[in-house]
């Protein structure tokens, strides 16, 4: 809109928006701040905001006591593995649906979506049982598979909406230029779709990272990722505020950073292309 806005109006907008933005962000900010306090300062009354003795002690304690690195590594493996595996399976499928649509394409897409809407709790026991039978309980491989499967519809959908924006004529040009199907996908489609594939990976990595039903119910010790690590801090005592904060900060920091990069794609991915 090429309209001059009075700077007074803009100033009011700015103040109100920043105030609300900070209010919404405050719990995260407070957690990060608390993680640098001593336990005593963390529960001081009245609360201390900035003028406390900054310390990294909590981080050291958390790492030492609960082996943060192992949980982090599990999270990385589970989120990364499930995302990459999902993308590998989804790219060919999305190619097919975007460029060789048939009468059933729409039905298949909607059906895939419908599997995403199955309430997890409805199939909790069967999965639990299957995992025991297959020896997958509390294993990273098992979680990679399950989380890949629950996110696969989103991955296919996101890739599909990105691929659909690539004009089919370019792929036909490649075919006329003598490219085989494999060459067409490797040399033409994939490079053109890299931004879309990257955002798909990013968003699904975040979703997998934060998944907190299967990761809580199918893990015990070995494969437990950060979601379970945090749940284990479920202590009612205020004495652990600083350590809880440190643990929380470590669990969310990687994903907050990634998330900020993916805000635009978030909309598309989570609305299945219905809002752009």
């Amino acid at each position: 809109m090429a309209r001059a806005v009075t700077s007074q109006r803009k100033a009011i907008n700015t103040v109100v928006a920043w105030a609300i933005g900070l209010l919404i962000f405050f719990p995260i900010l407070w957690t990060i701040l608390t993680s640098f306090k001593t336990e005593a300062q963390a529960i001081a009354s009245p609360p201390i905001f900035l003028n406390f003795d900054w310390t990294l002690e909590n981080y050291a304690v958390v790492q030492e006591r609960s082996n943060y690195m192992r949980f982090l590594w599990n999270s990385v493996i589970i989120a990364g593995g499930s995302t990459l595996l999902g993308v590998l399976i989804a790219v060919p499928a999305a190619w097919s649906m975007a460029f060789v649509p048939s009468k059933r394409t729409k039905d298949i897409l909607l059906w895939m979506l419908s599997t995403k809407m199955l309430p997890a709790v409805g199939v909790l026991y069967p999965i639990y049982l299957l995992f025991i039978q297959l020896g997958l309980l509390d294993s990273r491989a098992g979680l990679v598979i399950v989380i890949m499967l629950i996110n696969l519809p989103i991955i296919v959908w996101m890739l599909y909406t990105y691929f659909r924006e690539i004009p089919g004529e370019i792929l036909e040009a490649a075919r006329m230029d003598g490219a085989t199907l494999r060459e067409e996908i490797i040399y033409v489609l994939t490079p053109m779709a890299i931004p879309g594939i990257a955002s798909t990976i990013l968003l699904n990595f975040i979703l997998a990272w934060n998944e907190a039903f299967w990761t809580l119910n199918l893990t015990a010790v070995n494969a437990a990722p950060l979601t379970a690590f945090i749940a284990s801090y479920s202590s009612p005592e205020g004495l652990f505020f600083a350590k809880l904060s440190a643990a929380s900060t470590m669990a969310i920091a990687p994903i907050l950073i990634l998330g900020w990069f993916s805000q635009k794609q978030l909309v598309r991915g989570l609305t299945f292309g219905a809002v752009k």
Binding site: P27, I28, T34, N210, T227, A228, S248, L256, G259
Partner: peptide
């Protein structure tokens, strides 16, 4: 920046947000 501030809670792990709210 305001957008980023507003969006941030969505990226917080559900267990983290529940614990942080519950305790702190």
């Amino acid at each position: 920046i305001v957008r980023i501030l507003v969006i941030a809670p969505f990226f917080v792990m559900p267990t983290v947000s529940a614990l942080v709210w519950k305790n702190m």
